[in-house]
């Protein structure tokens, strides 16, 4: 998903999500979760709307967004790549796979390709360590990765 335009429509979407959770400050994480699922990421303007609706200081919203690695303030690519760097994947060479992704895409972790097609992120454990090293592109899981497979996988998209 690419950078979104902050217009009345976007703000209404955020307002509706906040409303759904009763505009309760205790629902901050749930609100952010659903907002990110809807918009793809949590830009500053969106966090401001959430802060206002839930009546919490903006820095608290930003505190939560910056604390949890799941939340992102950058727009993701059309096909978000999440590479696992958990213990099992790591010892089986996930770092080399990561380097290969970075090389092929020409971006670093946390960035989006200029055409907006791919974004690259790391996470800790997808819950299928038997497939290590593992990554997800969108909803599709790729296991037993080796650096040489990267080019081929990217070509699917």
């Amino acid at each position: 998903m690419n950078k979104i335009e902050i217009n009345d429509c976007t703000i209404k979407k955020v307002n509706d999500i906040c409303e759904k959770f009763g505009n309760k400050s205790g629902e901050l994480i749930n609100v952010l979760h659903e907002t990110q699922n809807t918009l793809g990421y949590l830009p500053e303007e969106v966090q401001k709307v959430v802060a206002q609706n839930l009546n919490v200081p903006l820095v608290k919203v930003y505190g939560v967004v910056s604390f949890y690695s799941f939340f992102t303030m950058k727009p993701k690519g059309e096909h978000p790549i999440s590479l696992c760097l958990g213990t099992a994947c790591y010892v089986r060479g996930a770092e080399n796979v990561l380097r290969e992704f970075e090389k092929e895409l020409g971006i670093k972790v946390g960035e989006v390709t200029p055409d907006g097609k791919f974004s690259l992120d790391c996470l800790r454990c997808l819950g299928c360590c038997g497939l290590a090293p593992v990554c997800m592109i969108g909803d599709k899981v790729y296991g037993r990765l080796e650096p040489k497979m990267v080019k081929e996988i990217l070509a699917e998209y």
Binding site: F67, Y68, S69
Partner: peptide, 20 residues
């Protein structure tokens, strides 16, 4: 009750700062 500063980031990078 101003809420200008709060804890942000996590782990080693955690610090008290303003929003963004």
């Amino acid at each position: 009750s101003v809420g200008a500063i709060g804890a942000i980031n996590r782990g080693f990078n955690a610090v008290v700062a303003t929003a963004f």
